[in-house]
Design a protein around this nucleic acid. Structure first.
Lengths: 333, 333
DNA sequence: CTGAAAGCGCTAACAA
DNA sequence: TTGTTAGCGCTTTCAG
């Protein structure tokens, strides 16, 4: 590979001059400028990123750590992070933790070794995590991570939206499929749902019977919980189930279909996340949408500000009403 | 940030010695080694990646360029690439092209500027692309890219599997939802399906009537094509439709459901890719599975060999039979 | 406006 | 076994 020296020699100028034209420093005479540009072209010269980084000591990559890029929510996040980063001239380094705190630690270390501008993390270890021994700014997305600033949807408030929606539709026997209790995000959604129920209870004059079941965020867990929720007689089982994730919701939908329970006729289902999947199944799932692009942009901004003011940011979720939710059976439309 | 010099000073040794212990060079006396390690710890010393890269001139990142990380197939690919890379001590840089050849070019350029070990690309521009002006090894995955070696599923042969499956089930009126003709991969799958039909035609003694419709790979396109395929009378419309992607298959499934056409009772649907989605919908979709992890590993290997022997690799696809395919209506099970 | 030269932090000879 | 030192390719003073 050609170096800046080669270019300088070929153009008959000094390396300083070449560097100047590369930096678009306008203090170079047109004549020399042309010569240099010609030389650059001829030698197919590409400045060496490592040398530049070393000299300027200003990294232009950000690390993104997610539990599993295969999860639609995270892949959307990755996409938006990449876009937000690209808009600022940053590149993103991707790492998966496979939901393993041990592996997560390792991934963070190797990422840190690359001395990035900062690290964005959707943690698998959440609050058990300890603060890192580094000056590189770290910001948590979607969940918390140790004491680092976190940017997320207001899970509590968002889950309230779902609760309110169900009561508004007249549902009384309500199920809630919660996420793993080890995660802050699952706990927030659950408590938010409960408090939402309480608040809306007065407004709609309904005292709901609530049944909470807990599992993982994934599809299989949804199926499983669904079987428990829907195993009872028609008079016993919930007429509406809210969940902590779209995957759970879809799992429950499957179970409902297996049991020949009509959705939304006999059962209303509400998801969380608004993953693309939610709009693909039949019926399309009513869910809570998170502002992924806003979070991504805020995260990049936070990193670029070197995380000077380490403030948490919360974005409201948005209720997206689709085909999977309807009025309680027996009530006129 | 502390430098190697600081460590050397604190430990009372030379930078060379520090460098040696960092390199795990065993020619350092235990006494000094201990001192150095203590100093490293105390100063929280982290070697500077840029300086190291500059000096060694051996990059340890690979670039991965995909049209859209949000596409389940690509996110799975990204996951496996990341894993394969991590196993070799490499990190991966992610870039999306949003299916835009213009943007793709740009992404490649910025990636190239980071002088990675190599670049893995699932191209959006495919064969229209020109070879790049660089020595950095590039390998195409899933599709071709200019003249670079490509690692992919044998789309032709895999599509034949689908064709054979349909004929084996006794289907005669067959639809094929092809992908965009601008992509090699879509063309291969289509021609493979056709030739598979021809081959199996003798074996099963069926002369199929084939109807080909073309669209994008996505879900919406599937719905649209589905409406055309299934718009005719029951006697006219196909009893089986194979597709170029799972998304198309799911789109068609949706249409079928809207039209109250039973799957697989009245219509068999076969997808392609075996994305997680395929197993989530009802009924689960029969599809062709690609060996993503094998491709990812082969790609990383190819990059690490500096692409000396630029050979294409093709992996066979695998027919995954699930609920969306059944015998032609009227035939006994 | 341009050239010369001093490093950025690190590794790898080469000496000692 | 350890210290010294010459760069890796680039940017950026500082002179001129």
């Amino acid at each position: 590979m050609a170096t800046i020296k080669d270019v300088a020699t070929l153009a008959g100028v000094s390396v300083g001059t070449v560097s100047r034209v590369l930096a678009k420093n306008d203090t170079v005479k047109p004549k020399l400028l042309a010569k240099v540009e010609a030389a650059v072209k001829e030698l197919r010269y590409k400045p060496n990123a490592a040398a530049r980084a070393l000299r300027k000591n200003k990294p232009d990559i950000v690390g993104l750590i997610v539990p599993d890029i295969t999860n639609p929510f995270f892949s959307q996040l990755a996409k938006h992070v990449e876009m937000a980063a690209a808009a600022k001239g940053l590149s993103v380094m991707l790492a998966n933790t496979h939901d393993d705190p041990q592996y997560e630690k390792q991934q963070i270390e190797t990422l840190l070794d690359r001395s990035p501008l900062g690290i964005l993390i959707v943690s698998a270890s959440e609050d058990q995590a300890e603060n890192l021994d580094t000056d590189i700014p770290i910001v948590a997305i979607d969940r918390t991570y140790a004491d680092y600033p976190s940017i997320a949807t207001d899970h509590e408030e968002s889950a309230e939206l779902a609760a309110r929606h169900l009561l508004e539709l007249g549902h009384k026997r309500i199920g809630y499929a919660a996420g793993p209790q080890g995660t802050q995000v699952a706990r927030s959604r659950e408590s938010g749902f409960l408090s939402g129920l309480k608040k809306a209870s007065k407004e709609f004059n309904i005292v709901p019977e609530i049944n909470i079941l807990r599992g993982a965020f994934d599809f299989e867990s949804g199926e499983e919980l669904g079987r428990i929720f829907l195993g009872g007689s028609e008079a016993d089982r919930p007429t509406a189930i809210a969940t902590a994730s779209d995957q759970q919701a879809i799992g429950i939908l499957r179970t409902a279909r297996d049991l020949r329970i009509d959705v939304p006729g006999a059962l209303t289902i509400v998801g969380f996340d608004d993953t693309p999947l939610a709009a693909l199944v039949t019926p399309r799932i009513t869910t809570i949408k998170q502002s992924i692009s806003k979070m991504a942009n805020a995260a990049i901004d936070a990193i670029m500000q070197s995380g000077d003011k380490a403030t948490d940011i919360r974005y409201p979720g948005q209720l997206i009403i689709r085909g999977s939710s309807g009025p309680v059976p027996g009530r006129q439309k």
